[in-house]
């Protein structure tokens, strides 16, 4: 129901994996002597890190390390933040045509919560969540419906299509562009109800 950064993850994992693979295999090829004919520095007895202490003693080294660390922090944090699933919920729904003659607004969760509540009234449904995406004129509905194990998924889908969606469209005033229904089966047989004894 929520959107994950699958494409971004796969792209960055490929890039980082390729860099590590080339470095590792390159070093092993040099160590085996296969690259010795290309350059004397690639001879297997050559010391590739010669002068490491000298580079470390350069006055610009701490600044360079701070810059590299800052870039790594930026990249790492932004990648980590992108792992948070996104809802891409619709903004406030605007029902009016001309604001000079009056304004009618509704927050998208008000509509989606009402639809979810409607779905929860269906037989065998134990819980439901709805999410409205797009806009009031181009609405897209995503439903996540938990049913008990005695339910037939297709029956629930049919009931949503025939009874819930027409009512939702009536409330919204325009047809949905697309509707997605994700069925989850749970062993829980009852809806959770609260009873308050006073």
């Amino acid at each position: 129901m929520r959107i994950l950064a699958g494409g971004l993850n796969r792209a960055w994992l490929t890039v980082i994996g390729l860099v590590l693979l080339v470095l590792g295999v390159g070093w092993l090829l040099a160590a085996s002597g296969l690259l010795a004919s290309l350059h004397p520095a690639l001879d297997q007895e050559a010391a590739p890190m010669r002068g490491a202490s000298g580079v470390l003693d350069q006055p610009w080294m701490p600044a360079a390390m701070i810059v590299v660390a800052a870039l790594l922090i930026l990249a790492g944090l932004s990648w980590l933040v992108r792992q948070i699933p996104r809802k891409r919920q619709a903004p406030t729904l605007r029902f009016h045509e001309d604001a000079r003659q009056g304004v009618t607004l509704m927050e998208a969760p008000v509509f989606s919560d009402a639809v979810a509540h409607d779905v929860e009234e269906l037989e065998h449904v134990t819980a439901a969540r709805a999410l409205l995406r797009g806009s009031r004129s181009e609405p897209e509905l995503v439903l996540r419906v938990a049913v008990n194990e005695r339910a037939d998924a297709q029956e629930v889908v049919d009931a949503i299509s025939e009874r819930i969606l027409p009512r939702a469209v009536e409330a919204l005033g325009v047809p949905f562009t697309d509707v997605g229904i994700e069925i989850v089966v749970t062993r829980q047989s009852r809806k959770s109800d609260r009873v308050r004894v006073q």
């Binding site: 998924a153 297709q154 889908v157 049919d158 949503i160 299509s161 025939e162 969606l165 027409p166 469209v169 047809p175 949905f176 562009t177 697309d178 509707v179 997605g180 229904i181 994700e182 069925i183 989850v184 089966v185």
Partner: peptide, 24 residues
Amino acid sequence: VASPEPEDAVVRGGVHAVITTGGL
């Protein structure tokens, strides 16, 4: 999951239904 062809007045595109593999 098979889903019925909706009326254009209700859904212009389509109703796409799935069930989780855990649900299966």
